[in-house]
Amino acid sequence: MAKIKAVHYINQFFAGIGGEEKADYKPEVREGIVGPGMAINAGFKGEAEIVATIICGDSYFNENIEEAKSEIIEMVKKYDPDIFIAGPAFNAGRYGVACGTIADAVHKELGIPVLTGMYVENPGADMFKKSVYIVSTKNSAAGMRNAVKQMVPLALKLAKGEEIESPEEEGYIARGVRKNYFAEKRGSERAVDMLLKKLKGEEFVTEFPMPDFDRVEPEAAIKDMSKAKIALVTSGGIVPKGNPDHIESSSASKYGKYDIEGIKDLTKETHETAHGGYDPVYANEDPDRVLPVDVLRDLEKEGKIGSLHRYFYTTVGNGTAVASAKAFAEKIAKELLSDGVNAVILTST
């Protein structure tokens, strides 16, 4: 068999082009191997080769999904690869969404096998685990070695059209595909075994995990906005200048609650962003671009809303664990309820 051709997709950061200030970098193709492609290519041990690397800024991709998709598909097409690999993206949200989106699109439009890798809490994982093989990685690039170790054999198998074993065996995130197989013991026996283990308090593995549809029913609409108390909440990290509570720029372990009584406008003198996951220049220049206090004050004055709640709540949604965000919001919601807040505007970057 001829050498397998792979095309690799990475973001501006892993390409070494730059951080957030370069996140609007447009798609570019480079012949050969860039960044993490080195390790992947080495892992192929000559059986496959990365012939081209496509680089795209995370913000560019997410803000221009359709254009980015079609530009990148054209680039991939030229190389007619046997496998398309994206990432791994670990817990980088925009990168994960980009990897999932482009892998899914390449597979659907060009019929090429695709593979990506990311942390299970990356929003891209939930969005694409059904349609794309996503190797389950750690939540930071410190997990690169392990990720590559899992991705290389799976990529080779996919490229060769070999049978893919279960998620546990191959290390990818379960896709919700059910596969028939012959078990050694029949169902009734397995069920009794499981029940006995359960009764003894031992560990057992279900054969049919229930899907987790965590959805919340929409709350009823506000009847009279001119009487409603509106609160602002953000994951965009807007804090008083100097970040008095030291909210972390990523993987935030806390949220802040800040008084805005008498403040008509957030300015670069009074507020800034603590978020480390987007280019902070625009938010620092005018924090209203993330937390629209100025406009809500006008609407309050004009009687369009009843009032703007005296406090805003803020955290940094950048690689922050879902469990942390959930815990923050539970506490925030309790306070908002007891303060008589009727509705919330939550802004995200």
Partner: peptide, 30 residues
């Protein structure tokens, strides 16, 4: 966060640029 606040009984509108993420997260008004 959107979901937990709404679960507590307060309607939330999520203002964000990457709406597919908001859909995945489970916001009801985007």
């Amino acid at each position: 966060m959107v979901k937990e606040i709404e679960r507590a009984g307060i309607p939330v509108v999520h203002m964000c640029t990457v709406t597919p993420i908001s859909m995945t997260v489970g916001a009801n008004r985007i």
